[in-house]
Each structure stands twice: as structure tokens, then as C-alpha cells.
Nucleic acid binder design. Structure first.
Length: 278
DNA sequence: AAGAATTCCAACCGCAATTTG
DNA sequence: GCAAATTGCGGTTGGAATTCT
């Protein structure tokens, strides 16, 4: 592929965005949506490349972005997710509503790496007894909704023309194995126990029925926004005019459930909370 | 007070993946 | 099936802000 000329060669502006530029792109996207990023600067009257516009919007101007410092819970979640996913910042960001991959990457490099560097794992004799921990094959998640998403992030997308398809049982097994492996590797009985509890709980994660998604996608509209949630299912575009308040509330409730889920898995466990102070 | 060093984060770069014609 | 166009992602950087000496 021939590389497109850089912004400067095309007489386009680089560097920090001005308030005026922000206002232009926000008002344009609010009224027209963002179908084609490359076309947006021309249509909106900005001397920026489409890539720069997309980055500015996704990292800073999107209305669903949460501003401000990361909470302790968010930081701990990032550490745990990074342990599972590695430098898959976008995958981590998908599980932290309101946070961008760029922001998470920055926090990782500026705060969390240092925190982990200074971290000495607690000497915990009860947790070091691997013989009592269930083998990974002993854990069988029936309701592995969240974990199958994690597994997808580890293995790559499950859909798409070239992606090998996994059976649901295969996903469950591999997912449970990877989670349990993390728990066992950490000597973490609490997490292993939680995985078992999840196995026995049919309704651990409240589900939203299929009509929720299909109804909202039934009509097309240029004005749309993205519900970024912990589940991929939440990352769909909602036509504004088709959105009903009750459905929005359902989505918000589900996001809260997602946060509770991660809190239970990663934060609530006393062992996993023993992370170093700055 | 001032200069140096460090921290932080928005933005850029380049590559890979995906979509389009 | 192919090439071009577009999008998404992760690594890196520039410079403003802050802290240190």
C-alpha cells in the first residue's frame, strides 16, 4: 500500500488542538456522526487529517469519557487485566467504561509499572499450598460470558472471515483454565473459590434479552453514539431517535453489574488487594 | 528566585488489519 | 483476487507542568 503523504506535506495542521477546533469537530459529529474520518476535516472545515480528528474525538472529546484521576479500584483492575491481556490497551479499555486505551497506557507507564516494580508479593503460607488448589480442569464455568470475552482478547477475535471458530465448551474450558491458571499461579485460593462460586451460580451476570439490541438497531440514523461497556455487546451504535429512556437505564444497570463483576473477581479478594502503596 | 531534572499526557508515527471498489 | 483506502492499535515523543536543588 502506498503511504498517504503526512499532514505537514499536505498543508495540514499538527500539534495541540485549540478550543475552536474542538468546538468545530464536536458540533460536526453531533449533527452528522462520524462515518468517514478522512472526509470529516474537509466537511467540517478543519485543517487536520482524519486520523488526527479520530484520535482527538476518541481520546478526548467523546461525551462518554470519564475525566479525572483513576480510582484505586480502576488501577487495580488495570493491573489484573494487564496480567491477563498484556499490552492490549484497547481490550483493557473496553472493560473500563469511560476510559480510553491511550489514557490507560499512560497510567500504566507513569504509575502502575512503578507500583508493580516496588511490589513484593505477600508471604502467605495458606495460599502457597498448591496441592489443595483445584486443578485447572476441575473448574468448569457454565456461565463464562465475561471470561469468553477475555479469552477472545487473548486469542484474537472469534468472528471474522479468517478467525477459527471455537465451540462454546472449548471457550469455557480454555477460559476457565486461563483464569484458574492465573489464580493458581498467584497461589490465590480466594479467586479460585470465586470461580467455583460463579460456576454454581446460573445468574451470576444478569442477561439482557436479544430484543434489547435488535430493537435499537432497527433503524439507521447518522446521529449515533457508542455505548462503551465491559461487554462487546454494549459496543454497538444506538440510533438516537430509537433510543428509549428505559433501555438506556437497562444499559447503565448492566454497566454497573459489569463493574461489580470485576470488583468481585479482582478487587474484593483480600489477597489481590495487597498491592503496594506509592 | 532560578535553573535543572523529572513527571505527565496529548498527540504523533508507523504498522497491521479490515473494508471497499 | 487484488490494490487502494480506511481504521485501529501500540509504541514513542515533545513539551508543558511540576518538583527538586
Amino acid at each position: 500500500m502506498v503511504r498517504a503523504p503526512c499532514c505537514e506535506k499536505m498543508g495540514l495542521k499538527k500539534g495541540p488542538w485549540t478550543t475552536e477546533e474542538d468546538q468545530i469537530i464536536v458540533s460536526y459529529i453531533q449533527s452528522n456522526g462520524h462515518g468517514n474520518w478522512r472526509a470529516i476535516p474537509k466537511l467540517a472545515g478543519l485543517l487536520r487529517c482524519g486520523k488526527s480528528c479520530r484520535l482527538r474525538w476518541t481520546n478526548y472529546l467523546r461525551p462518554d469519557i470519564k475525566r479525572g484521576n483513576f480510582t484505586r479500584e480502576e488501577e487495580d483492575s488495570i493491573i489484573q487485566l494487564h496480567e491477563m491481556l498484556g499490552n492490549r490497551w484497547s481490550a483493557i479499555a473496553a472493560r473500563l467504561p469511560g476510559r480510553t486505551d491511550n489514557e490507560i497506557k499512560n497510567v500504566w507507564h507513569t504509575h502502575l509499572k512503578k507500583r508493580l516494580k516496588n511490589y513484593q508479593p505477600p508471604q502467605n503460607s495458606k495460599n502457597n499450598n498448591d496441592s489443595k488448589a483445584p486443578s485447572t480442569s476441575q473448574i468448569n464455568l457454565k456461565n463464562s460470558h465475561n471470561f469468553s470475552n477475555i479469552q477472545e482478547d487473548i486469542n484474537g477475535p472469534r468472528s471474522g472471515p479468517n478467525s477459527p471458530q471455537r465451540s462454546s465448551s472449548e471457550i469455557s474450558t480454555v477460559t476457565a483454565d486461563s483464569m484458574a491458571a492465573t489464580a493458581v499461579t498467584n497461589g490465590d485460593q480466594t479467586m479460585v473459590k470465586q470461580l467455583d462460586e460463579m460456576d454454581s451460580s446460573e445468574n451470576f451476570i444478569p442477561e439482557i434479552d436479544e430484543s434489547f439490541w435488535t430493537d435499537n438497531l432497527s433503524t439507521a440514523d447518522n446521529s449515533s453514539f457508542v455505548m462503551a461497556g465491559a461487554h462487546e455487546e454494549l459496543q454497538v451504535q444506538f440510533p438516537f431517535h430509537a433510543m428509549k429512556q428505559e433501555r438506556v437505564e437497562m444499559a447503565e444497570a448492566k454497566l454497573e453489574d459489569d463493574m461489580d463483576f470485576w470488583y468481585n473477581v479482582f478487587i474484593k479478594s483480600g489477597d489481590l488487594l495487597e498491592l503496594p502503596e506509592f
